[in-house]
Amino acid sequence: MNLITLIVIVVACLLGVGLYGLLITRNLIKIVIVLQLLVKAVVLAFVAAGKVSGHPGIGESVAATVIVADTVVAAVALALAVQVRMRLGTLDIPKISSLRG
């Protein structure tokens, strides 16, 4: 088994775990963590993609940028989660869901 196959398997597992997590997780903080899993999978995918296509430089620089961009999103999401906890006193998704229909 070569490195690429291994990376692809890891990426697939991370994606699977991430998507599954998004469906079942009911806690906002955990949702943010699960999102991070997904992003990390994609970062790995970029590294592998760069390697496969013979342009490892592109893949790596993209991966680095994604990490930065994603940190901002995670920070915003967490900040919002903190606000939710402060104003509503809970992080449980069903309890904060009032906008429907």
Partner: peptide, 26 residues
């Protein structure tokens, strides 16, 4: 806050998927 949270999460899922597409194309 609720709307913002939903927006962040769904939008983030979308952009991860799009990004995966970019990786595949690469």
């Amino acid at each position: 806050l609720e709307a913002g949270m939903k927006y962040v999460v769904q939008s983030a899922v979308g952009s991860v998927l799009a990004l995966l597409g970019v990786a595949l194309v690469l």
